[in-house]
Measured scan of single mutants.
Amino acid sequence: TGEEYIAVGDFTAQQVGDLTFKKGEILLAIEKKPDGWWIAKDAKGNEGLVPRTYLEPYS
């Protein structure tokens, strides 16, 4: 299990392996990579890379 984050903006996948999401979606951070791209999972179970700058902790 990971930590929940809320998307603060829309993001469209730029390449294969990225995860597209919309502002307000809750994402589960699976792995926090030091380069600023995290592996996350959305509510539908889709998994991919997301930019850290689009996420804020969800409580």
Rank of each mutant, 00 (worst) to 15 (best):
K32F: 08
E3T: 10
G17P: 03
E47K: 12
I6T: 05
G9E: 15
P34H: 11
G9A: 15
K33I: 06
L49S: 10
G48T: 01
L19Y: 00
P34Y: 10
G17S: 06
E47R: 10
E47S: 11
P34C: 11
K32A: 06
I6S: 03
K41D: 01
G9Y: 15
I30F: 06
A40P: 01
K41T: 07
D42R: 00
G2M: 13
Y54R: 07
K22C: 10
G24A: 03
D35T: 07
I39Y: 12
E31P: 03
T53A: 14
K32S: 05
F21E: 01
I30C: 06
A29Y: 04
A29W: 03
R52I: 14
W37A: 05
Q15W: 09
K41A: 08
T20C: 06
L55C: 05
P57V: 09
E25H: 07
Q15D: 09
W37V: 07
E31V: 14
N46Y: 08
A13S: 10
K41S: 08
I26S: 03
G48M: 01
V50C: 06
E4I: 14
G48C: 04
I30P: 00
G36W: 03
G48R: 00
Q14W: 11
D35A: 04
T12P: 06
F11T: 02
D10C: 07
Y54H: 14
P34D: 14
D10Q: 04
K22P: 02
K23D: 03
P57M: 08
D18N: 11
A29S: 06
E47P: 04
E4W: 15
S59A: 12
A43I: 10
L27G: 00
I30W: 04
A13L: 04
E25N: 07
I39S: 06
G36R: 02
G2D: 10
G36P: 03
D42T: 05
I39H: 09
W38M: 08
F21K: 00
S59Y: 13
K23M: 08
K23T: 09
E4G: 07
L19G: 01
V8Q: 07
G36C: 08
S59R: 12
K32P: 05
T1V: 14
Q15A: 12
D42C: 03
N46V: 09
F21C: 05
G45R: 02
L55W: 01
R52A: 15
I39E: 03
E47F: 14
P34M: 10
V16N: 10
G17D: 05
I39L: 14
E31T: 11
A29P: 06
F21D: 01
L28V: 14
Y58E: 04
D18R: 12
G9D: 14
K33S: 10
E4T: 14
P57F: 08
W37T: 06
N46H: 09
